[in-house]
């Protein structure tokens, strides 16, 4: 299968390892990965902040980059960005009165998958240890990000994949379904409330005794990791794609030279 990677802006610029892990996983399964070079961002930040006019060119750019027959399906390592592609792009086009863009956005949205969706529903991955060689001997807790959970209805797809990684010890996160408080520009516009939500999330994570918290959205993990780091916690964050990509021979280091959010003193 030919799979187009939508890296998402935050992963592209801030967390390239997450995208590289995604590539590694898909290539290990024998698929060809392509990277449409025109891609940039899903536009969610603009839309969710009410800047529809500014969102339009961003949405148009994404649709331009991905509206080709050059691949079978598109994938992004983010529930939130995929939800935006699937649910918001048509809305933005409609609100701005661009019917042609609306129609093309629907086509792109229909063939875009979140990583765990693609792995589980399309590529038939049920046992990461066996099928991907995933090996990660660490104590991990998992935060299901809101948009993946509620807009994409991912259910336990990410968790099941994680549970099938060799050596992993998964510990349940209390109040896991509670938002971490990121919410894009919410964290700036309502910084106090966002901070209060983050405080509770961080306390729940630390209470598990896990070495790190994983999840499916780099933005939420950046938020959570940033809070843990500020509190001086040694607990880090790591995208689940990197855990799936980790093998016995090429392990993802959890401490040491490679930095994890919040893992730094």
């Amino acid at each position: 299968m030919k799979i187009a990677l939508f890296a998402t802006c935050i992963v592209d610029a801030m967390y390239p390892r997450t995208a590289r892990a995604t590539v590694a996983i898909l290539e290990r399964l024998g698929h060809e990965v392509v990277f449409p070079p025109g891609q940039a961002c899903c536009g969610q930040m603009h839309v969710n902040s009410g800047y529809f006019k500014e969102a339009l060119p961003v949405v148009a750019n994404h649709v331009r980059a991905f509206d080709t027959d050059d691949y079978d399906v598109a994938v992004a390592p983010s529930g939130s960005c995929v939800a935006s592609v699937k649910h918001q792009h048509e809305l933005v086009a409609r609100r701005c009165g661009d019917a042609a863009l609306e129609a093309r956005a629907a086509v792109v949205g229909a063939k875009t998958y979140e990583l765990s969706q693609l792995l589980t529903d399309v590529l038939g991955v049920t046992d990461a240890a066996r099928q991907l060689g995933s090996h990660f001997p660490h104590k991990v807790t998992y935060h299901p990000s809101c948009h993946g959970m509620r807009l994409l209805k991912l259910g336990d797809r990410q968790l099941k994949l994680l549970a099938s990684v060799a050596g992993i010890e998964l510990v349940e996160l209390p109040e896991a379904d509670q938002c971490c408080g990121f919410g894009g520009t919410f964290s700036l516009k309502n910084a106090d409330v966002s901070g209060a939500m983050l405080e509770d999330k961080a306390a729940n994570i630390c209470g598990t005794g896990a070495e790190l918290c994983t999840g499916g959205d780099a933005s939420c993990l950046m938020h959570i990791g940033g809070g843990l780091s500020r509190q001086g916690s040694k607990v880090g964050t790591l995208h689940f794609a990197e855990i799936l990509a980790s093998t016995l021979d090429n392990p993802v280091p959890v401490a040491g030279d490679v930095q994890l959010a919040g893992g730094r003193r």
């Binding site: 390892r17 290990r28 066996r130 090429n250």
Partner: peptide, 24 residues
């Protein structure tokens, strides 16, 4: 690459961890 056997060629597909810039 053969999954899970550890016989990756180490040229970009095996591990995303060789250079800096991890999840933070």
């Amino acid at each position: 690459v053969v999954p899970g056997t550890g016989t990756t060629n180490g040229t970009g597909t095996g591990s995303p961890t060789e250079s800096e810039g991890g999840q933070a």
